[in-house]
Simulated scan of single mutants.
Amino acid sequence: MMLRDKVLLVDRQDTVLGEMDKLQAHQEGRLHRAFSIFIFNSFGQMLIHQRAETKYHGAGLWTNACCSHPQAGETLAASASERLDYEMGIQCKLQRTFSFVYHGRVENGLVEHELDHVFVGTFDGDPKINREEVADFQWIDLDTLADWLTRSPQAFTIWFRKALPMVVEEMSKRSNP
Results as ranks from 00 to 15, higher is better:
residue 99 S to A: 09
residue 6 K to T: 13
residue 65 A to E: 01
residue 39 I to R: 02
residue 40 F to T: 06
residue 134 V to C: 12
residue 130 N to Q: 06
residue 19 E to Y: 09
residue 167 V to G: 01
residue 50 Q to F: 10
residue 51 R to E: 08
residue 102 Y to T: 12
residue 74 E to P: 03
residue 126 D to L: 15
residue 79 S to G: 15
residue 5 D to I: 09
residue 58 G to W: 01
residue 121 G to Q: 07
residue 3 L to M: 11
residue 2 M to P: 04
residue 50 Q to D: 04
residue 75 T to V: 01
residue 39 I to Y: 02
residue 83 R to H: 12
residue 40 F to E: 11
residue 8 L to I: 13
residue 172 S to I: 09
residue 71 Q to T: 05
residue 16 V to K: 04
residue 1 M to S: 11
residue 69 H to A: 11
residue 145 L to R: 02
residue 88 M to F: 05
residue 142 L to N: 07
residue 54 T to L: 07
residue 60 G to I: 11
residue 173 K to L: 11
residue 40 F to H: 03
residue 57 H to L: 12
residue 94 L to V: 00
residue 58 G to Y: 07
residue 166 M to C: 08
residue 92 C to M: 04
residue 111 V to F: 14
residue 42 S to F: 05
residue 60 G to D: 10
residue 113 H to G: 04
residue 63 T to Q: 14
residue 104 G to Y: 10
residue 140 I to E: 15
residue 150 T to I: 01
residue 98 F to P: 03
residue 123 F to N: 04
residue 126 D to P: 00
residue 147 D to V: 08
residue 174 R to V: 03
residue 164 L to D: 01
residue 73 G to L: 03
residue 39 I to T: 06
residue 99 S to P: 00
residue 56 Y to V: 09
residue 168 V to H: 08
residue 130 N to D: 11
residue 53 E to I: 04
residue 68 S to M: 03
residue 177 P to C: 04
residue 15 T to A: 10
residue 158 I to G: 07
residue 112 E to L: 08
residue 116 D to W: 00
residue 7 V to M: 01
residue 140 I to M: 14
residue 7 V to F: 02
residue 34 A to W: 00
residue 65 A to M: 01
residue 157 T to N: 14
residue 1 M to W: 06
residue 9 L to E: 09
residue 119 F to K: 09
residue 120 V to E: 01
residue 29 G to E: 10
residue 126 D to T: 14
residue 119 F to M: 08
residue 129 I to G: 00
residue 145 L to H: 04
residue 40 F to K: 14
residue 52 A to R: 04
residue 125 G to V: 04
residue 61 L to C: 12
residue 147 D to R: 15
residue 46 M to T: 12
residue 67 C to K: 07
residue 90 I to S: 05
residue 118 V to I: 10
residue 66 C to T: 14
residue 148 W to M: 10
residue 79 S to Q: 03
residue 89 G to I: 10
residue 70 P to L: 07
residue 122 T to L: 14
residue 84 L to N: 06
residue 114 E to D: 10
residue 138 Q to G: 11
residue 119 F to W: 08
residue 142 L to E: 09
residue 127 P to F: 09
residue 4 R to G: 02
residue 122 T to P: 00
residue 87 E to T: 10
residue 93 K to C: 07
residue 118 V to H: 11
residue 33 R to P: 00
residue 101 V to F: 04
residue 60 G to H: 07
residue 15 T to E: 11
residue 60 G to M: 14
residue 149 L to R: 13
residue 94 L to P: 01
residue 166 M to G: 01
residue 136 D to F: 10
residue 20 M to S: 15
residue 107 E to T: 13
residue 169 E to Q: 13
residue 149 L to P: 00
residue 55 K to G: 08
residue 97 T to G: 13
residue 162 K to S: 12
residue 148 W to A: 08
residue 126 D to V: 13
residue 177 P to F: 11
residue 3 L to V: 15
residue 105 R to P: 02
residue 175 S to N: 12
residue 77 A to D: 09
residue 160 F to K: 05
residue 153 P to W: 12
residue 90 I to P: 07
residue 94 L to M: 06
